[in-house]
């Protein structure tokens, strides 16, 4: 398919694929034709979950490090919004201005993520998964049992975004655009960063850490820095998450939700940063409409079955499935081509 140029001129959005252009236009004008439910509960929530899963894809897809602590990092940012800013529970709530609270929460989440990295980067594969899962479980039990800072089982409520420029940012349409802006920013940062010196070195470490040491790289430092950057993404999404829910409690950072982030990333596909957003949309649609297919209590059965089907038939997620369908259609159109991709 021929590429088109949206904006004429050197270096300004050159060669945008028509499908990408249609997707961008759809996302921009989505609130104009969707109901508040679809804008907020489906659109905005998919973008928030997708952004958290994007932080996992950055680590796992580019760095080969599967971390189950990404929701924990987002959860810490959410808790800090309630602890340092305002909440309606009457515990903590130091009353810092929203912008200072958000910046501190995001930075603290990034440092927390780097600490998780420092603990886990010397391991590989299943051991990294186990260590990061252990950290996520420890965080869950800690916040559930700590009443002085985290308010234990109850957690915090009344954590809302500010009214700025005369706009209440938790209204469906403003919150959707806020989530879209954050998701788009990190999406393009990951796409750009993948070809940066650090991005290339992260992929090289994924392919062969021993060789990276043998050409002068401190592999441990690079991995920890990757965790720090992924913490920036997860932390920012964590701020959006607590604004979306209006509350945060141990249930928000429980093991089931931690696993959901992995499911979203795998279902969407880890080959491209768009994967987690595709996975998040599929997840949120299932979460909301599984009740029409099966009993509400059986949601986990539905998502588990969907996960199994994707892993069995398309290990590279919905993105991989879509790529194979396109390839099959192309072969049907041009049967002479073997599609081997060898030039």
């Amino acid at each position: 398919m021929a590429n088109i140029s949206l904006i004429a001129g050197k270096g300004v959005l050159p060669n945008i694929h028509p499908a990408a252009a249609i997707t961008v236009l759809f996302l921009l004008f989505y609130p104009a034709f969707a109901s508040d439910f679809f804008v907020f509960q489906i659109g905005a929530y998919s973008l928030v979950l997708g952004t958290i899963a994007l932080s996992l894809v950055m680590l796992a897809g580019y760095g080969g490090m599967v971390s189950l602590s990404q929701l924990t990092v987002a959860g810490l940012a959410g808790y800090l919004m309630a602890i340092l800013g305002h909440n309606s529970v009457g515990v903590m709530g130091l009353g810092w201005p929203w912008w200072l609270t958000a910046l501190t929460a995001i930075f603290a989440a990034s440092v927390f993520s780097a600490l998780i990295g420092a603990i886990s980067v010397r391991t590989e594969g299943i051991y990294t998964i186990m260590i990061t899962l252990a950290i996520a479980v420890a965080f869950f039990y800690f916040v559930r049992q700590n009443y002085v800072i985290f308010n234990g089982f109850t957690g915090y409520a009344g954590v809302v975004p500010p009214t700025l420029f005369g706009i209440y940012w938790r209204d469906p349409t403003p919150f959707y655009y806020l989530s879209l802006a954050v998701a788009a920013f990190f999406f393009f940062m990951v796409v750009y960063g993948a070809r940066s010196t650090f991005g290339l070195s992260l992929q090289a470490i994924r392919d062969n850490p021993r060789r990276m040491r043998a050409i002068g790289y401190d592999v441990t430092l690079h991995r920890i820095f990757a965790y720090f950057l992924s913490g920036l993404i997860a932390g920012t999404a964590g701020v959006l998450m607590v604004w979306f829910n209006g509350r945060i409690s141990p249930g928000s950072v429980g093991v089931d939700v931690v696993i959901d982030i992995l499911v979203i990333a795998v279902v969407g596909g880890m080959r491209h940063p768009i994967g987690p957003f595709v996975g998040a949309l599929a997840f949120v649609l299932l979460e909301n409409f599984a009740i029409d297919l099966i009993d509400r209590e059986r949601f986990n059965t539905v998502i588990g079955t969907a996960f199994l089907l994707v892993v069995l038939f398309s290990p590279d997620g919905l993105l991989g499935l879509w790529a194979r369908i396109r390839e099959r259609l192309r072969l049907r159109k041009h049967p002479q081509s073997d599609g081997s991709g060898v030039h």
Binding site: F198, L200, M212, H222
Partner: peptide, 13 residues
């Protein structure tokens, strides 16, 4: 990457 490994800017974004 091998050239960059022995110089500065390894963490450049």
């Amino acid at each position: 990457l091998a050239c960059r490994g022995a110089s500065r800017g390894r963490l450049s974004l």
